[in-house]
Each structure stands twice: as C-alpha cells, then as structure tokens.
C-alpha cells in the first residue's frame, strides 16, 4: 500500500528547509515538535505541497495545522492514503 515513510519525510524537509539546520529526524524524534526540529510552518507548507503533488492527494487544512510532530504528520498523510485505498 502507498505510504509516506519517515525517511522520505526527513528528505523532503531537508530539501525544503536546508541541509544542516534542525535536529535529526529519526525514530527518536518522532514526537518532537517540528519547530523544535528547526522546521517552521513554511517549511511544512512547502513539504505538504510536494506530498500532495507526488501522491495526488488533498490533505485537510485544519488537520495539517494540528499535525505538529513527525508522527502526527505521517499519521495524517498515511491515514489519507489508506482511506483512499479503501474507497
């Protein structure tokens, strides 16, 4: 099933917000706030644009605003992908 993996998200964020900024995004920081990882709302907006484009998806704006950690963000995206696959 189509999924967004943590490693892909880490790569997208690095591309959107620069290579050497922010803490490392891995299993240990899944529940760390994006802001504390060095990624602001614009970086996430940029990443969301790419995710929506690459997966031909439209994510709910309010849910996006509440997805403030990598785990929450991945759950949101993968939930939307799963819902579409089930439909």
């Amino acid at each position: 099933m189509e999924r967004l993996e943590l490693s892909e998200l880490a790569l997208l964020l690095r591309e959107a917000a620069g290579e050497d900024e922010g803490a490392v995004l891995d299993e240990d920081t899944l529940d760390t706030l994006f802001l504390d990882l060095g990624y602001d709302s614009l970086a996430l907006l940029q990443v969301t644009g790419v995710v929506e484009r690459d997966h031909d998806l439209m994510l709910d704006e309010e849910a996006l605003a509440e997805a403030q950690t990598p785990r929450q963000y991945l759950d949101l995206v993968n939930g939307a992908l799963a819902a579409r696959a089930a439909a």
Binding site: E15, A16, A17, G18, E19, D20, E21, G22, G38, Q46
Partner: peptide, 8 residues
C-alpha cells in the same frame, strides 16, 4: 547564506 535560507 545559511543552508536553511537557500530554498527561500
């Protein structure tokens, strides 16, 4: 320029 500012 800091890396963070390059994409923007």
């Amino acid at each position: 320029v800091p890396a963070k500012l390059l994409p923007q």
